[in-house]
Design a protein around this nucleic acid. Structure first.
Lengths: 336, 336
DNA sequence: TTGTAGGCGTTATCAT
DNA sequence: ATGATAACGCCTACAA
């Protein structure tokens, strides 16, 4: 292991480490042109690059941001990760991407590890579990972090007070349902996400609210749950179709569900949107290329990721940013 | 900033830091039960967690793996990232995910930064550019890394000697073409990836080879390029359709291209696979849920990611692992 | 079985 | 304008 340190550079240039450090960090400190050049030359010749571990030890935090996501292979989180890594990189940060695989235990563990690495902050694109034990643990973590000066921002509702950058999930569910209602639909099913997830809960509430306002009777059989995955959407839709026959539209709580739903619908011989309309929430990359192209509520994932990094790096207390989401009209919804 | 260090624990427990360190690291060192318990209690009470920066400084490397990808929001890389982060986490590592946004300059910069962080190794799911200047720079990096003992493994052909875990890209292009030929197709178009990318180059070579072996005449108009994105595939297909009319099948160099292609085909009124067949390479998550479900060569991205981590953590010289890829038959190809 | 002390590479404080 | 040195938190030879 042939590592060159600041001491090597100092020796090579015939100056002190202090001087090298000053040159490296470009502080507005008077250094003679000649000395600076000597140092720069030595740095170049020795291919010196500072050791981040040492810097981190000294500064008590590293140029690193932690991102916790449910599933990095899901486009939803992929776009967030792209936003985070892009902006982080612009600001000289690197990003730890932590994949929970939808496992809350792992998620809590990641908080610890991230803290051990003295990251600048944590962006939480996971959690949101409506379970006392999970929520308590998360609050503990939050308290610890608060005490230790570690910044945290959430991209999804957590059911507790926490700085956030997100859309209004309730409005999201409401908007897509209203969109359908405005186009004459009344027999509308809803395929939701996990029952214990605040995101699902809010979107479902929005759905019910829209129905309620329009005076459409609420039918329990029309509501199914899934796990927010394509496969989950596929299974949920099949289950739904086995129970209900007179649907004219399906509200999917996210695009993955819609993708699975469309696949199941096709298997059953339904043509979209002639026989049945489909709408969802997310507008992930593939929505545009579905057949037919999917009408969906556009969530600015990439922007959310970028903004979250800004929140972490320019820390202020009490950040509560609600982003706009509007429906992207394509061809999966028909007007009755 | 209220950080508790090993010294605090030692004081609190009334022992030396050495003892605390030994307890923490669970080395098979004889420690009296009473002492161990005292230490454990102190650790718990103080909520002590070791500082990774300090550990990294001491050990000269950190429990971190760097992953460089072209586009983290692309399912192709998403699955790789999932494999990497999952396996890394199992082994106690964290992963820096570096997104090049398909920019070679950024990519080289990431090599530097990763080295500064003294990562255990770098997994390269990018690069592969057939350009002298890029290749030279990459080789420089490799040489530097070699000298410094930093492990590197590539998941794609780079045109230079480098440890790798990947599929045979040439065979991939050949296999999907043969699949079409076996089913009676002769008017076969090819929509490839970027011209300068070894992955594209190899897949195209494979296509041509299969044609050649089958004695099918090679038609230049049948071959188009894209950028491996859905949008690129869409545009390329539209261009193709404007020039060529008698196609019975299209070979897409990856699934994204196929997704865009199917979308374009639909716009032109073609029904898949009745009017035209589509096949591709990758088998990303959404392939299964396309309408119709996409027949594609299945690349084990997740496994590749996992194996790459093993290669990094259990380093041996000269790793050359070629993975199997077989065609996943679905409904986008018709037998003539 | 337990403890002392030096050093990893950097930055910051305090001389000169 | 430049340099010596202490400190960050951890691990590990070496002592005891």
């Amino acid at each position: 292991m042939n590592t060159v340190s600041i001491v090597d550079v100092a020796k090579h240039a015939g100056v002190s480490v202090t001087t090298v450090s000053r040159v490296m960090n470009n502080v507005d400190y008077p250094i003679s042109k000649k000395t600076r050049e000597k140092v720069l030359k030595a740095i170049d010749e020795l291919q010196y690059t500072p050791n981040k571990a040492a810097q981190g030890l000294k500064n008590n935090f590293s140029d690193v941001i932690g991102l916790i996501v449910r599933d990095i292979s899901d486009s939803y989180y992929g776009e967030i990760a792209r936003g985070v890594t892009t902006r982080a990189s612009e600001l000289g940060y690197l990003s730890f991407v932590c994949n929970t695989g939808r496992n809350p235990e792992d998620e809590l563990m990641y908080h610890d590890i991230l803290w051990q690495h003295r990251v600048k902050g944590i962006i939480l694109a996971a959690g949101g579990l409506d379970q006392v034990d999970y929520k308590n643990k998360l609050m503990n973590q939050l308290a610890r972090h608060e005490k230790s000066g570690l910044n945290i921002v959430s991209l999804a509702p957590q059911g507790i007070e926490i700085p956030y950058v997100m859309i209004n999930e309730f409005e999201a569910g409401k908007k897509i349902t209203e969109y359908l209602i405005e186009r004459g639909h009344t027999k509308i099913a809803f395929i939701g996400g996990p029952q214990k997830l605040y995101t699902s809960i809010e979107r479902l509430k929005g759905f019910k609210s829209a129905l309620d306002i329009a005076g459409i009777e609420y039918n329990k059989d029309y509501i199914t749950k899934s796990d927010f995955s394509q496969n989950g959407g596929y299974e949920a839709c099949k289950l739904l179709l086995s129970k209900v026959k007179d649907l004219t539209a399906i509200c999917c709580a996210n695009d993955n569900i819609a993708i699975g739903t469309m696949s199941a619908l096709r298997e059953h011989g339904y043509i979209i949107p002639k026989d049945i309309s489909v709408i969802s929430i997310g507008d992930i990359n593939e929505a545009k290329y579905m057949i037919p192209p999917l009408t969906t509520l556009s969530i600015p994932h990439y922007e959310m990721g970028k903004m979250a990094v800004d929140v972490i790096t320019q820390w202020k207390e009490k950040v509560e940013i609600t982003l706009n989401a509007s429906i992207c009209e394509r061809e999966s919804v028909r007007t009755l």
